[in-house]
Write a protein that binds this DNA or RNA. Structure first.
Lengths: 333, 333
DNA sequence: GTGAAAGCGCTAACAT
DNA sequence: ATGTTAGCGCTTTCAC
């Protein structure tokens, strides 16, 4: 069987035709197990995300799967529920064994965890801007996005803006970066930063948004705007405000992040920061595949080069974003 | 290396300990490619669904992945966008090659397609009640569920109930079965069935729900209730009614199907038919794995048995459901 | 330009 | 109870 040679070298047209006919006649299909064993590459990449039903990750997964297919790869999706142990396990454990590389959107693991964690696989990080990463990563400019969203709220006359899902500004993680953008926007106008307005969320789900919004509006000095660090939090908040008889946007404006489809159809429709998801999917898949191929050919190259611990070049790709202004941040009433 | 033998036969405790220590010391991990090639089984099953960001399928996928992991299997998720060609391709094409079996939720393919389609892989169908299936399937009782939902609307004083996403009652597919349940509920009370009230949807998305609801309430004889065949359609409809100044549930009641998380937090919260998703996930995975194992051992058994075209026993498992009554179908105002 | 053969890492059958 | 071995289907190298 010289048929497999088909893929690359030179072959006479007649033989090729004959072989192709035989293939069709016998209904032959390559056995991926054999190929995988021989090549050491399965053609499968893993995508590790917190949770698919957050909307954002469902949409992103879809785009990544399509993009991977364009490159003849299959995608295996793992969910971590944003739990640190599960993120660790997904990077290294069950299900990672026949995968060529990993696209990873960490939520619970921080920079230190990531640095400490040694993986034999190529990894591309999504949605974070890790401080001193050993891995490539692709992300939006979270600080700037949060700052723009906050500016938008300030421009529309809001003065007490709470952050739902925020954590004190710090070097690590999406939440901190967005909180930092928020703080910068306040400082640029000489406004006071009130830590009481920044409320961390554990799960970034509807329920957390609802609970935190209820707490805030029932508190001593209620806010007149909510900067919610993702759309589910924002939609939960909207629901809680409705229950509390608080008008949106009349009494309180609400802004989210991620632009999930539902925000367009909710009542009121949701103002949100929309990352360029197709761009993100494309960049991430291409970066990962490049890394996989680099390592493969890198191995065969110089012995000395192979002795190096890791490729030293870490790429960071910043994806564009847009603030979509919709009903939930309309004029104060 | 006798270590691999570990898995099954008898071995002395001392040797086992020694081998395990060596494994730990060397950081050895089994190579799945080798195992796959040798065993002819990859430990991966495919899950083929229309779209993850419909909420329902994201939640279901999550449950199925968990369930599969309990059985030491990994799940590969494919999306078909409810397009017939992509459903066909997913059953047989790229990405199916290193999979031991398939869980398939068809939307576009009908009974005939399914019967015509020959797959070498074990298949379990989800969410349908195919007429003369060659495959196992697990589903809810769609006729009864739709009938209960319709009864609920009739009980609350509604008289003109439209079906969004419905297709004329017929033997095939979820939509037809639900429409049939709707019709039965009407007939049981001697009410007239008005085909103009049954509106098919192409995509079962928010937008379709919004469009169809708008059409209906702006029509000559607007309905006072909407039976929407999934939750996204229902949420889209709610949004369109709000835009049209129609009160929910005051003027029009809305009911959905599938119980996606968002329906609990929407304004108003959504009455919906809630299938027992964990039960569905469990039954589906167990059925598929049983089938995979049956075929594997079946091959080795009698030569004559292997000559039979297909195992003749097709199992149908019916999963429970509940009607969750929430705000969107409250009293008429 | 084409065919032959070795070997990827594993498991199941067999020999010890 | 343990060690040895053949061979799963593919790709790559090498000989023709």
């Amino acid at each position: 069987m010289s048929n497999v040679i088909n893929d690359h070298p030179n072959i006479s047209p007649r033989t090729r035709a004959a072989v192709e006919e035989a293939i069709a006649a016998l209904g032959y299909r390559v056995n991926l197990a054999g190929r995988h064993l021989r090549r050491g590459e399965s053609g499968v990449i893993a995508l590790i995300v917190p949770e698919l039903d957050l909307g954002y990750f469902a949409e992103l997964s879809d785009l990544i799967i399509r993009e991977a297919k364009r490159h003849s790869r299959t995608v295996l999706v793992h969910q971590t529920e944003a739990r640190r142990e599960r993120e660790m396990a997904a990077l290294d454990g069950f299900g990672t064994d026949f995968v060529d590389g990993v696209l990873f959107n960490p939520l619970a693991m921080d920079d230190d965890d990531l640095d400490a964690h040694r993986t034999r696989l190529p990894v591309v990080l999504l949605g974070e801007t890790p401080q001193a990463g050993r891995h490539h990563h692709v992300t939006i400019d979270n600080v700037r996005a949060a700052r723009e969203a906050t500016d938008h709220l300030l421009d529309s006359g809001r003065t007490r803006i709470a952050v739902i899902g925020g954590r004190p500004p710090g070097p690590t993680g999406t939440a901190e970066l967005r909180a930092q953008g928020y703080r910068e926007a306040l400082e640029a106008r000489g406004l006071e930063y009130d830590p009481a307005l920044v409320r961390p969320a554990r799960h970034f789900h509807w329920q957390d948004g609802a609970d935190l919004a209820a707490e805030l509006v029932n508190g001593p000095r209620p806010p007149d705007a909510l900067l919610c660090l993702n759309d589910p939090l924002a939609l939960g908040a909207v629901r809680a405000l409705y229950d509390a008889g608080v008008g949106v946007p009349g009494d309180v404006a609400v802004v989210g992040f991620d632009d999930i489809a539902l925000g367009r159809y909710s009542v009121p429709s949701l103002t949100t920061v929309s990352p360029d998801k197709p761009g993100l999917a494309r960049a991430a898949v291409e970066l990962l595949i490049a890394e996989i191929e680099a390592r493969r050919s890198g191995q065969g190259a110089t012995e000395e080069a192979a002795a190096e611990p890791q490729a030293p070049v870490v790429k960071e790709i910043v994806i564009g974003h847009t603030l979509l202004v919709r009903e939930s941040s309309g004029p104060k009433g």
